[in-house]
Simulated assay, not measured.
Amino acid sequence: MDVIDLRDFYSQRLGIVARRLINRGIQACWPDAEGQRVLGIGYPTPYLGLFRDNSERCIAFMPAAQGVLKWPTGRPALAALVDQFSLPLPDAAFDRILLVHALEMCDDPESLLREIWRVLAPSGRMIAIVPNRRGVWTRTDNTPFGHGRPYSRAQITQLLRHTWFTPASWGEALFMPPVANSWFLRSAMAWERAGEALSMPLAGVHIVEATKQVYRALPAHRERVRLIPSLQPVLVPSPSTRG
């Protein structure tokens, strides 16, 4: 999606409620980030406000295909337009990385996660907000969560393990339907609590925290031995020449 569409969604009442509910799940994993280096990738600015004031540094990277908006407004810019497969960072540059509207919008999520693995510190942690394949929010295109590729929990787990991450904790958010009706918006917290208590599988997004595998396993390939028979030398007569 274009960055203008994303901005417009989060400025509407439905987007404001969605941000509040997802922030609950993020704070459950990361109550604070004091002294930590925090990086957001995708369109993370609605959620980075949780960490901007108490972290060591907090910046946002937005992919070139999406576009970038100045963030925060009224302060020096902390957002940049980047190539998401070649981040302008040294290895192990950040302690925590937040992915929002990133994996589902990316045409090569494995390459993106491997680049994130490179810039994440050995003791670092990552949170990915990913649309739930079984959720109601993915079945409508009036929100950003209805665009791109949604994932099941098994698909996310497989993707993370292929890219050298280990899932550490799971959460869900957006149990309410994506309806901008005043009654639904007022009862959003009741929907969340009921969905969490009943472990309903129809949440709009997965909130998965993963850790970096510093010593990743390498596949072992057994070398095939090709047997070559031992041959005895044989004298080959030279062809006779006639004068």
Rank of each mutant, 00 (worst) to 15 (best):
L174V: 04
W191D: 01
A194Y: 13
L174Q: 09
E192I: 02
G171H: 10
A188R: 13
V205P: 00
P201H: 07
A194F: 15
L185K: 06
M176N: 06
W183H: 11
E196M: 11
G204Y: 03
S187F: 12
L174A: 08
L174K: 07
V205F: 02
L202P: 00
E192V: 05
E172L: 11
P201M: 08
L198P: 01
P201I: 11
G204I: 01
P177L: 11
P178K: 00
I207H: 02
E192G: 07
G195A: 09
S187Q: 13
W183F: 15
L202V: 10
H206A: 02
M176V: 00
V205S: 01
P178R: 00
V208E: 01
L185I: 07
L198G: 02
E192T: 05
E192W: 02
W191P: 02
R193D: 12
S199F: 04
A190T: 14
S182V: 12
L202I: 10
V179Q: 11
V208L: 11
S199V: 02
S199G: 04
G195I: 05
A188Y: 10
R193F: 10
G171L: 07
G171S: 15
E172M: 14
V179P: 04
E172P: 01
A180S: 15
A180E: 14
F184D: 03
I207F: 06
A203I: 07
P201K: 06
F184R: 03
G204H: 04
P201N: 08
A180I: 03
W170D: 12
G171W: 02
G195L: 09
A190I: 12
R186D: 12
A194Q: 12
A173Q: 01
G171Y: 05
E192A: 01
S182M: 09
I207G: 04
A203C: 12
W170E: 15
R186E: 10
V179A: 12
S199R: 13
F184H: 08
V179K: 13
M189T: 15
L174E: 08
F184Q: 07
F175C: 04
R186A: 13
M200Y: 04
P178Q: 04
A190R: 11
E196I: 05
A197Y: 06
M189S: 14
W183G: 06
E172N: 14
W170L: 14
L198Y: 05
V205N: 01
G195Q: 08
F184T: 15
N181C: 07
S182G: 03
I207W: 03
N181K: 09
P177T: 10
P178C: 03
R186P: 02
W183C: 10
L198C: 09
E196C: 08
L202T: 10
A173G: 03
F175E: 04
M189Q: 13
R193Q: 14
W191S: 05
E196A: 14
S187I: 05
A203S: 15
A197I: 02
N181I: 06
R186S: 12
E172G: 14
A194L: 15
M200C: 13
S187P: 00
F175I: 02
W183K: 10
G171F: 06
F184W: 08
